[in-house]
Design a protein around this nucleic acid. Sequence first.
DNA 1: GCGGATTCTCAGGAGATTCACAGAAAGGCG
DNA 2: CGCCTTTCTGTGAATCTCCTGAGAATCCGC
Lengths: 261, 261
Amino acid sequence: MTSSSSASFRLPAPASSSRGAPGKQPELLRADGSPVRVLVVDDETSLADLLSLALRYEGWDIRAEGDGAGALRCARSWRPDAVLLDVMLPDMDGLTVLGRLRRELPDVPVLFLTAKDAVEDRIAGLTAGGDDYVTKPFSLEEVVARLRGLLRRAGAAAARSESRLTVGDLVLDEDSHEVWRDGQEIHLTATEFELLRYLMRNPRRVLSKTQILDRVWSYDFGGQANVVELYISYLRRKIDVGRTPMIHTRRGAGYLIKPGG
Amino acid sequence: MTSSSSASFRLPAPASSSRGAPGKQPELLRADGSPVRVLVVDDETSLADLLSLALRYEGWDIRAEGDGAGALRCARSWRPDAVLLDVMLPDMDGLTVLGRLRRELPDVPVLFLTAKDAVEDRIAGLTAGGDDYVTKPFSLEEVVARLRGLLRRAGAAAARSESRLTVGDLVLDEDSHEVWRDGQEIHLTATEFELLRYLMRNPRRVLSKTQILDRVWSYDFGGQANVVELYISYLRRKIDVGRTPMIHTRRGAGYLIKPGG
DNA sequence: GCGGATTCTCAGGAGATTCACAGAAAGGCG
DNA sequence: CGCCTTTCTGTGAATCTCCTGAGAATCCGC
């Protein structure tokens, strides 16, 4: 076997200032400092494009393939650090692709994309090796979060401590889905949690309602943009009530979160 | 039993490097600090792949072989710390393989995989020397646990003879299968025990119902995901009744266990 | 082979969550 | 200051998730 080129990841020194990539929190990097490589495999071009765009924005190196053959070719030559794999592909069974992929990249984590109606014929063992999956339709935040989780766990232990986001006295744990403000635990619903995570991953940055909608709600959401206002309101009630507000409105622009004061 | 003929699972193949361990408890290591080596011998590729994947995720170094000849070759050159051996191999009798394996690796523990209808006393004889066995179909948690037990007892683990998991005042002994909450012993059925062990091996981490199903139920389970809810309910009745709850539901995400509070 | 223990399906119900709608409140501008 | 726009939030309904009792099927020890 070829010596595994699987990179171990490390985190750059934590800092609160923005960095190369879009003002995000600490980025995952390969051991040599180059960006993490993610292979996207989906035959629906629109989806693949959407995903590629979003993941690129995370500062990752993205390559997309539309079928199993291409995916395998790419895996072989490009050696990605993670794979985003639609289990329904045109040319070959998703599981076949997976099998060959694993033969090629034994230690690379895979995030599966599955249709929601395929839940019934679930595939045993899909998550057995620490892999994960999301069901369509998904939100981009969800995909990014899961992917980060996989990369984090697949990488060096050093990167493991980083399952928490912190802004001021507000802390969010991505593993346990717990949130604390000033040490006090706060219960959030799934949507509230994803919204807050998105805000906290972009501290001090104005996010428009459209951006939030595109990012936190699933891509097929057809409702009113006003849900964002509603959920911001919910969040405020839970984390800003009676304290120095951290969520701020920029009229005509959007919302942002920043440490109190 | 819904004979969901849907997807028979096919998974990847072996390879020789190790993926970082998950956010697990103490890891087993060899004396020199390198990962423990486990040789998987099974002619059913899908099973061998599934096992390789799961064991690799434990942080172990895995190699897989499909027949007795390959197994012996690998044993000789690679010197594994444990062997996972299907007693039904195409080219030679399981006993023969075992015999030669023993000549090669006298002190290495072996975990047998056997069909459920296999003659029990024959296996009993095989395990006389401190080896162990699991019957197909098995759950990954079971295999991993047994393997950990064997390795621990064989001393490959550098002083890490921890057979107990502790989360708050909840204690689980993997050797005796006993469980205590606040000093009081609690009787659990086999499935309840495995579920609790899985939760306790991943404290403060949200585990989805799919993850739990993939890990705690046997790989051929074709039933409804709602068994997980049921067993969570059983567990709560036994360990959380009238006390500070330790098992928590994260709606839309999964379950997690954490010390009271 | 018998009887209790265990595993699992099914389905009803409780409760949580999501979201639209609409009026109230706040901000901005002439 | 009055008016228009944008944002906030109360209400309620539809939906979804989860919990659990009941009972059938199966396993296991004796």
